[in-house]
Simulated scan of single mutants.
Amino acid sequence: MGATGGATMEEAGGLRKRVLAFAAVLALIVGGFVLARWASQPSLAPDKPVAQQWIEAVSQFGLEPVYPPQEDFVVGDILAFITADRKRYVEADPLPLRAVKLWNADLSAELKETYSATYRFPATSERPANEKSIWKQPARESASIFETPFERRDMPLALLPGFTIATKRAGDLDASGLSAVVGLRASGAKSVQVSVEGVETYGVPALYAEAALLKFCGNERFKNVCTDKGMRAQLSMIVGSDICEMMPAGPKGKTTPRFSVELGLVARVYLARSVQTFLEDGSSVTLSGSSTGQAALPSPPSPPAQLATPPDAAAESARKSEQTIIDEKLSAQRASITQREATTAPGVQSVVQRGDSSRIAINQVLQRPVAIGFRSVRYIARPVEGQLCDRK
């Protein structure tokens, strides 16, 4: 009877371990599939349109972005801007969705005057082959280095650092039981690196730009455009009648327009002749598992039942010492069995790894430079109550 009972307990322990192992493997399959799909397929920035990614990246340089980059965006352009929408974020919209070009003020005379009074340093010499040598720069022999040129024939240079749009994901899945230990790790990364090369810039001082904008608004043909009502009439070509929408009254009972509008003149433009783009995509999945199929360890024997009549102190002390010795032997035996299970027990141990990556480089050199950013002077016209728009 005792042998049969022991075998039954061992069979029950083995069945329990097999059930736990199956549950752990099932958890690995289901959870691992979800984890791998999540981690190895990251989306960029996250799922933003290319226009918004470009605009946010260029904005980090302290510039107002031009998207798409274009050649016919020049100093002197006058635009009506939507600068805020109280229902959505519009700062990341490309210019065609939030600005209308109204006019171009000819500032060629101001540009010539500006750069005729600006000196030009000599070109940089070749870097010496010996890094320890002094990198000497050429000196102007015919005139002072601060001599102002009579006529400038090239544009001033500008330097913009490259920027990266990237996202990474990584995760772990672990399941453990008495007879199985499985784990999975998945990771993925996508990035877009953009390098803008050959950057040049030109512009006029703010006072010239302000004078040109005020002159435009003082012209009888255009002065109505410089009012809040006139700007909204122009911008209605982009957003329609929503440009006249008013927001609900606030705590003080005052209403405000949904859109804020401004008039601006482009005072400085940044141009690029080459754009390099690097697209990188990589992911990896690692699966590890082990199973020994060993039966559960038997439970330690129960301590002997206490006598109904309390023994004397000497007998009690001897019984406790004997029980302590038994417990220590059982603990050592269990530790030895566990160690053998971890190192020499038969079973399956496996590691599966998978990874892939790709890199695409695109270098686009343009025939002529295109505008990628600008700076402007702005004019704000306060709306007249009850005259936001012409309503028919």
Rank of each mutant, 00 (worst) to 15 (best):
P94Y: 11
M231L: 15
P49R: 10
D228Q: 02
G76M: 10
M155S: 11
G250P: 01
I238C: 09
Y202G: 02
L178S: 09
D356I: 02
V74P: 01
E110S: 10
K190G: 08
A109R: 11
P46S: 12
E200S: 12
E197D: 15
A332M: 08
L160A: 09
V182T: 10
P122I: 00
F81I: 04
R88V: 07
E197Y: 00
A361H: 11
V50E: 14
S283A: 13
P68F: 15
M247T: 08
V194P: 05
Q364D: 14
Q323T: 05
A7T: 08
C389P: 03
K392T: 10
E220H: 07
R152G: 02
Q276K: 14
L388W: 12
Q353K: 12
T83Y: 06
A80Q: 08
V196N: 03
R368T: 13
A24G: 02
N130H: 10
R378K: 15
T344W: 01
T324C: 03
V58W: 03
V75G: 01
E131I: 13
A3R: 08
R140G: 05
T8P: 00
G253P: 11
I360N: 11
E262W: 00
C389T: 05
G2K: 10
A313G: 01
P96G: 10
E151F: 04
P383L: 02
T114V: 06
T256W: 04
A27F: 05
P248M: 09
Q353M: 05
G386A: 05
S284W: 04
R391S: 08
R221A: 13
P251E: 15
L35K: 02
K101Y: 03
T8S: 08
A371W: 04
V90P: 06
F374L: 14
A296V: 07
T324Y: 05
E280C: 00
W54C: 03
T124K: 12
V75H: 03
F81W: 13
P68G: 12
P298F: 09
V90N: 08
G355Y: 02
S290I: 01
A206N: 12
F259T: 07
S350Q: 08
S350L: 14
A212I: 05
A158C: 08
D312N: 14
P42M: 11
V266S: 03
F374T: 06
V225D: 15
K229R: 15
